[in-house]
Design a protein around this nucleic acid. Structure first.
Lengths: 346, 346
DNA sequence: GTTAGCACTCCATCGTCTTGAGTGCCAAAA
DNA sequence: TTTTGGCACTCAAGACGATGGAGTGCTAAC
């Protein structure tokens, strides 16, 4: 037996996968020859199916059922068989419409992206919020909340607002805080956070000699404010779509998945993987390396601002998923968000 | 037949409800006399049960099953029978522990509250974020994002950060923005938002005469920044607990509920109802007035800061719920949050 | 290499039967 | 008058078995 697939085998594999994606039912040889474009007898198809099963692309739940794709089958399908169609204009409009409203700031936009992905794809939408370190410094502000607590409010170039509570060990005068604020805003605006951090460290070293107490505190404060939280944040929308999937009908299973979402950390990890990749990434089942998501697939794409990649967004669903329609949607959304972040706020 | 309940009837009703809450199974007359503290024969109990059914406190799924409480039954139970025990020390500790960490700002604290409610109660936790209008002005900042866009960042007394994108029709110079910022911070700090708004309107009227262009813009900007979004925000944690409830085993039903959560608006409405109320509120089933939540109960309590009620928090679950343990937890959490908001940040 | 035919497998479905928990009612007991 | 034991009745749930049908693998013919 050949260990590569003839064109005919590929055609049949493709037909099976697409039929299974559409119906969630095991596909039999007869159905293939009748409704789908296979011009062979059921017997011949059966031979090919047996071969595909041997090679690990298909499996059958029991002897008298049809075949269903394995993970390997999906992977081959996504890598080799899938023809990604362009998004039709209507869908583009549907997506773009959501961002038309005025006065959408970045956080709202990302949430909207997640929601739109979810409703358009009928799966769960995911958007990773940009990490602090990938953003550009625009403005910082220190607000004194109590004698020992200062709230740092930090605005990035793209209008994302992050804030952080800082415990201080001396009672700073509001006037001093103002001075610090002014100094930082004057000298740091437009730099990336990494540059800002580097600069702070450099100037602090220098500062040792000069010993300007106030300036010193400015640096301490701002470096505290700009510490990157290790854990990124994910915006999840449309968890309820999972409840539509027949493969997750049993509650304990379902529950494990929803809990995984609530924890977020696993999703952060998975989305992080798409950060360096170009274009759309597909992670199928066990490729996630998390048993909780063994029968889920993620489709992700990175979005970027003026200065490179900011984060990733995508969709998660069962691994029986209409990849050919979802992939372009995710791709288009990522590009759209990138475009919006680029033209806005300059 | 009496239309009030004898003490014996009440005892039996109570026993049935508590048994049903514990097991989710219809309760029969035999079980009551055997395991629970009813010292009567099954036959007598049956008489009472028939009576309770006639009065609308109980119902039976079919003739040969036991009885289950109706909504009216639960309502009577909550109003008249329930003895709310104090929270035991261990649980208090378990809750309080979560807030021990340093540097928790308000938003984090509210999220933590929702999460803790969820894990301690094994239901879904809800926390309503304070409305802008109930908070006290501490600091405002305008950051120019583009020639026509200004980001207003607004910090409340308790350290909650809200931000809003404002479209402006003239290109403001950063120096002007700074002046505006300074002016507002000097004159408005410590006032409630309502006072701030009143003051702005008053000064704007006066301003017409004086016509200081800059000041005028300050007022326009800040009133735009302080417009209260009509829709409050709710922090929902632990949706997955819903999947544990046997009464929501069928997926379409479950899905409707989860979708209701995702929409949030209904939850906002329900939580709003608890704003003026003192102490813990229980909303059972159809009392929610939303058919989607016809078999859910909410237990809510208001939390407050230095100057009155800020918002509400609570728990939502099936209406078969151990009210006697949940109510004190919600109560305690609301008080705890109030205390933390009060002593912090002064 | 392809196809028709055929025996075989096994799940899903349906009706039947049984079981048992629980009820309502009545008459006897307290 | 209230309580209780007894008894016939009801009905869901589970077990069992038969049936049907979709699908397979294999073999022999085309």
């Amino acid at each position: 037996m050949a260990n590569y697939l003839t064109e005919r085998s590929q055609k049949i594999l493709e037909a099976i996968i697409e039929e299974y994606i559409a119906t969630a039912q095991p596909v039999g040889s007869k159905a293939l020859t009748l409704n789908l474009g296979i011009k062979l007898s059921p017997a011949s198809v059966r031979n090919v199916m047996a071969e595909l099963e041997e090679l690990g692309y298909l499996t059958s739940p029991h002897t008298s059922a049809g075949r269903i794709p394995t993970e390997k089958g999906y992977r081959f399908y996504v890598d080799s068989l899938l023809r990604i169609s362009d998004l039709d204009v209507r869908q583009k409009d549907q997506i773009e419409l959501k961002y038309r409203q005025q006065g959408l700031q970045m956080a709202d936009m990302l949430r909207e992206a997640s929601r739109t992905l979810s409703t358009v794809c009928h799966y769960t939408g995911l958007v990773m919020v940009p990490r602090l370190k990938t953003t550009i410094f625009r403005h910082i502000e220190f607000v004194k909340l109590s004698p020992r607590q200062v709230l740092a409010v930090f605005v990035t170039q793209s209008g994302l607002v992050q804030n952080k509570l800082i415990d201080v060990d001396e009672d700073l005068h509001p006037r001093d805080l103002e001075k610090i604020t002014n100094y930082l805003n004057k000298s740091m605006t437009g730099l990336s956070i990494q540059e800002v951090r580097a600069r702070i460290i450099a100037e602090m070293a220098e500062e040792k000699a000069l010993f300007d107490h106030l300036l010193r505190r400015a640096f301490v404060l701002s470096s505290a404010a700009l510490v990157d939280e290790a854990t990124g944040d994910v915006i999840i929308e449309g968890t309820s779509h999972f409840l539509e999937q027949p493969e997750f009908a049993d509650l304990p299973h379902m529950k494990r998945i929803v809990q995984t979402f609530e924890q977020k950390s696993i999703l952060v990890d998975l989305l992080d993987r798409g950060l360096e990749a170009k274009g759309v990434q597909v992670i199928i089942g066990s490729e996630t390396a998390y048993s909780e998501l063994a029968d889920c697939s993620l489709i992700t794409a990175a979005y970027s601002g003026k200065r490179g990649t900011l984060g990733t967004l995508g969709v998660i669903g069962p691994y029986r998923m209409p990849y050919s329609t979802i992939i372009p949607i995710v791709d288009y959304t990522a590009n759209l968000i990138s475009r919006l972040l680029d033209t806005d706020n300059d």
